[in-house]
């Protein structure tokens, strides 16, 4: 029962949305609108569960004095303090979301730089991965390597300085061979998605509900 009801809902929902696509009638559109109104509501409630989860995990670590437990404090304190700054603290003492406020300070002076730092680490990691893993081990790997060098040079002004042919070749690679390969993979992915969706709708695939193999 616990598994059959969700499976029935998945089947019914999947079939309705499939049929709805072909019916432009108002009644069909109402079904679609109804779904689109519900989706954000369900998502919002799930977020509450999410916050509950992160709180539970870290409270547990703090209580148990698990290794590195002070990091859990670093998670929990801002998690609850920042909304407090934004919604409950009076504007006279730095509350609210306007600039200047404590919330704005945390956002623009802490969160943005930290996140930008995380992304910028890509440059370091790419360099390291390229040095360690990019080898001309075979003829195909050599083609890949030469292509990568051309595209990389084509993406920066120094490529223009070396000759107009370089950026032109780089763009040609992106516009044609890249496109062909991408389409081939995407076709496979598309049919993979189709088969997975059908398996879920018709209950062949139950693993996502924890019922694999039944």
């Amino acid at each position: 029962m616990k598994r059959n009801v969700p499976l029935m809902i998945a089947m019914l929902g999947g079939l309705i949305m499939m049929i709805q696509y072909f019916i432009p009638h108002q009644a069909s559109q109402d079904v679609f609108d109804y779904y689109t109104e519900w989706a954000p509501l369900v998502g919002s409630f799930a977020l509450i569960l999410g916050v509950g989860s992160i709180t539970r995990v870290h409270v547990h670590k703090i209580r148990a004095k698990a290794p590195n437990w002070p990091f859990s404090l670093a998670v929990l304190i801002p998690l609850y303090l920042i909304p407090l700054f934004a919604f409950f603290l009076p504007a006279s003492i730095g509350g609210g979301t306007e600039n200047p406020s404590l919330f704005d300070f945390m956002y623009s002076r802490v969160q943005i730089p930290i996140q930008a730092t995380m992304f910028s680490m890509l440059a370091f990691y790419i360099a390291s991965a390229a040095f360690r893993a990019f080898r001309a081990k075979s003829a195909l790997a050599t083609v890949l390597l030469v292509t990568a060098v051309i595209v990389m040079l084509a993406q920066v002004p120094i490529g223009d300085l070396l000759g107009r042919w370089l950026p032109d070749t780089g763009l040609w690679i992106l516009r044609f061979p890249n496109l062909a390969a991408k389409r081939a993979i995407e076709l496979g992915v598309g049919f993979g998605m189709l088969a997975t969706c059908l398996k879920i709708i018709f209950g062949v695939e139950r693993g996502w509900l924890g019922g694999a193999g039944e």
Binding site: A123, I126, A127, A130, F131, R132, F134, R135, A136, L145, A148, V149, M152, L153, Q155, V156, I158
Partner: peptide, 14 residues
């Protein structure tokens, strides 16, 4: 410069 460096690293690695 970063792209040139990465290309150099790939060449040196090879």
């Amino acid at each position: 410069l970063a792209h040139i460096l990465i290309i150099l690293l790939v060449i040196l690695g090879n």
